[in-house]
Deep mutational scan, measured.
Amino acid sequence: DEVTIHLGDKTIRVDGLDKELLEILKELARRGADEEELRKEIERWER
């Protein structure tokens, strides 16, 4: 499953996201997290 996250004018595509992680990323994005913060969160989950 590829998920596309839209952040204002930026788009991040991620393969096979965990549903819980997806919810966390959506919440972070709502709070104004930037792409770098979201990537760090994704990397934390992948470990």
Rank of each mutant, 00 (worst) to 15 (best):
1 D>A: 12
45 W>E: 00
21 L>D: 00
41 E>Y: 14
41 E>G: 01
27 E>N: 13
23 E>M: 13
25 L>C: 02
15 D>S: 15
17 L>P: 02
37 E>L: 07
30 R>F: 09
42 I>G: 00
5 I>M: 03
29 A>H: 06
15 D>R: 10
34 D>T: 15
14 V>K: 03
38 L>G: 00
10 K>P: 06
3 V>F: 15
28 L>V: 01
13 R>I: 11
12 I>A: 02
39 R>E: 03
3 V>A: 14
22 L>A: 07
27 E>H: 11
9 D>K: 05
20 E>R: 14
8 G>P: 06
26 K>W: 15
46 E>V: 12
14 V>Q: 03
10 K>Y: 15
23 E>D: 12
27 E>L: 15
30 R>I: 06
39 R>I: 11
7 L>W: 07
12 I>Q: 02
10 K>L: 15
3 V>C: 13
1 D>P: 12
26 K>S: 06
37 E>C: 09
42 I>M: 07
16 G>C: 06
46 E>R: 10
19 K>M: 09
1 D>M: 11
37 E>Y: 07
23 E>S: 12
13 R>C: 04
6 H>N: 14
33 A>M: 05
30 R>C: 03
36 E>Q: 11
21 L>T: 01
20 E>V: 13
42 I>W: 06
26 K>I: 14
47 R>Q: 12
25 L>D: 00
9 D>I: 04
32 G>N: 03
21 L>C: 02
47 R>N: 10
30 R>W: 06
26 K>H: 09
2 E>C: 07
21 L>E: 01
28 L>M: 15
28 L>C: 01
23 E>L: 13
47 R>D: 07
39 R>N: 04
8 G>T: 11
2 E>N: 11
4 T>P: 07
35 E>I: 13
21 L>G: 00
8 G>M: 06
37 E>P: 00
18 D>I: 06
36 E>N: 08
45 W>G: 01
42 I>E: 01
40 K>V: 06
23 E>R: 15
5 I>V: 06
3 V>R: 05
43 E>H: 08
24 I>K: 11
10 K>Q: 08
1 D>Y: 11
43 E>F: 04
33 A>N: 01
37 E>Q: 11
13 R>D: 07
28 L>E: 00
18 D>H: 12
46 E>H: 13
17 L>M: 09
8 G>R: 05
16 G>L: 12
17 L>K: 07
32 G>S: 02
22 L>G: 04
32 G>M: 01
46 E>A: 13
26 K>F: 15
31 R>N: 08
34 D>G: 13
8 G>A: 11
10 K>D: 06
2 E>A: 12
9 D>H: 07
44 R>D: 05
28 L>T: 00
4 T>M: 11
11 T>S: 13
10 K>F: 15
5 I>A: 03
9 D>E: 08
23 E>Q: 13
46 E>L: 15
